[in-house]
Design a protein around this nucleic acid. Structure first.
Lengths: 127, 127
DNA sequence: CTACGTGCAAAAAGTTTGCAATCGC
DNA sequence: GCGATTGCAAACTTTTTGCACGTAG
């Protein structure tokens, strides 16, 4: 269960690091293929799954679409997401809401939370 | 493109109405089969998709899992979700956070938001 | 009666797995 | 050299689609 450094893994992590926003497996695959031409889709799936299990990347869900992933150290810097329903991209937004404890029903334990704003990004809004 | 009232559609909507929490397509299928024995899985998919397009039900996403659905009139009564990572169920919780506008980057338009608390429900927490 | 909605089977899309060849260490 | 990792193809799973029949209006 050693961890071996390979061109493919480096490329995948680099893609996620450079993106600055959550990406789908397909997006990662396309982007990584630019660096490592013959890379296989299964390798991307395997690597992403491994990174997710190790907690190095976090999954972001959008209804009706496959999950997207982003580096955990980004996720650790607490932030949230903005889903543009026009161009369908997800952006990271800084800041966090507080006072969530008051929403919690008694007996429930709060471990974390995920907030997604929905709307149109600066590029897609009619502004 | 008329809308015809059928036994199957009634059963599916009844299941969602009675559940009180977001359900997956499979869950709806199983529950609806109790009322309409020979119901087909495709019918459930088709009906749910149609209801979603008409805005009568809302999709709730959980990373790594298929979407779950709940009646929109419930979603309209603004609320949020709690995902128990132990029993893997999603609960509705009342109340809503405010002040989201201040999180919004300039140029972005806010249409809605989705907040999911993550943790252990009263049944699963060690309490 | 007309044509929308259903059930079944086949197809498509998305993800995982088996295996021989490769490459890091 | 040894064994983890890869790429390809096949297996699976989940969701969508084609079609003939049943049925609501």
């Amino acid at each position: 269960m050693e961890s071996r450094r390979t061109r493919q893994q480096d490329a995948i992590e680099a893609v996620l690091a450079d993106a600055g926003r959550p990406m789908s497996v397909q997006e990662v695959f396309s982007a990584a293929a630019a660096t490592v031409p013959g890379i296989g889709l299964s390798t991307v799936y395997r690597t992403i799954r491994k990174l997710a299990e190790q907690g190095e990347i976090a999954a972001v869900a959008v209804p009706g679409q496959p999950d997207r992933y982003e580096l955990a150290h980004v996720a650790a810097t607490h932030h949230h997401h903005f889903h543009c329903t026009a161009c369908d991209r997800v952006f990271d937004i800084r800041g966090c809401v507080g006072g969530l404890d008051r929403l919690l029903p008694s007996g429930f334990e709060l471990h974390g939370h995920e907030l997604t704003l929905v709307g149109a990004c600066d590029h897609c809004s009619g502004t």
